[in-house]
């Protein structure tokens, strides 16, 4: 697949429109997944993906083939999502919170210790991610899911590297607290 993508990139850079279409077909589901993880809204994710591919198409000549095409595309997607969320047009965090709350299983047998299987943890993680403020979610998704370096994350989100690290700390802390709540956590820390 990577070799195939690389060949398509070379052809597309040479002006082959069909090759660019093939690139889109090969990568759009993954790009959509990232966009949805960043925005947590299907409609926003669609807009972000379309904008990302348009930018990629227009800027393809600038793409240096020493990096992976998908990584380059992820950076563009992150930038588009940041711009889109920055507009605050349709993004309603409160609605997400309401939706997420209904996904929590509040039955007694649903305590984290008893239901530690990977599938459930994944589902709860998705809900926890939905609860994060978008500016924290973007950083943790790009760093811990997509493995982008702090420097690139900062550049695409228009923040400093130090700010990216602070946001990552906060995001991880909030996710941990939501996934693994500890009884009387604050009191026990007094030592």
């Amino acid at each position: 697949m990577p070799t195939e993508v690389a060949a398509l990139v070379t052809a597309a850079k040479a002006g082959d429109r069909g090759a660019f279409d093939e690139l889109v077909k090969a990568t759009y589901a993954e790009t959509y997944t990232l966009a949805l993880r960043l925005t947590h809204d299907e409609e926003d994710a669609r807009d972000v993906v379309q904008e990302a591919y348009l930018r990629a198409y227009k800027g393809l000549k600038k793409f240096r083939e020493d990096a992976q095409f998908t990584t380059w595309l992820y950076r563009i997607t992150a930038n588009c999502a940041a711009t889109h969320l920055g507009k605050g047009n349709r993004h309603r965090h409160e609605d997400l919170e309401d939706a997420a709350d209904t996904l929590f299983d509040e039955r007694p047998e649903a305590d984290p210790e008893a239901q530690a299987d990977a599938g459930l943890l994944r589902d709860r993680l998705s809900v926890a991610l939905a609860h994060l403020p978008p500016r924290l979610r973007s950083v943790v998704v790009l760093r811990d899911v997509y493995d982008l370096p702090h420097e690139e994350i900062a550049e695409e989100l228009g923040i400093t590297e130090a700010a990216a690290k602070v946001r990552l700390h906060r995001a991880r802390k909030q996710l941990r607290e939501r996934l693994f709540p500890m009884r009387g956590e604050e009191e026990a820390r007094a030592v």
Partner: peptide
């Protein structure tokens, strides 16, 4: 938490 986040990378959501 980090392990679970890494696993998300392998998932592709259906557009």
């Amino acid at each position: 938490l980090l392990k679970a986040l890494h696993v998300l990378r392998t998932e592709v959501l259906e557009p």
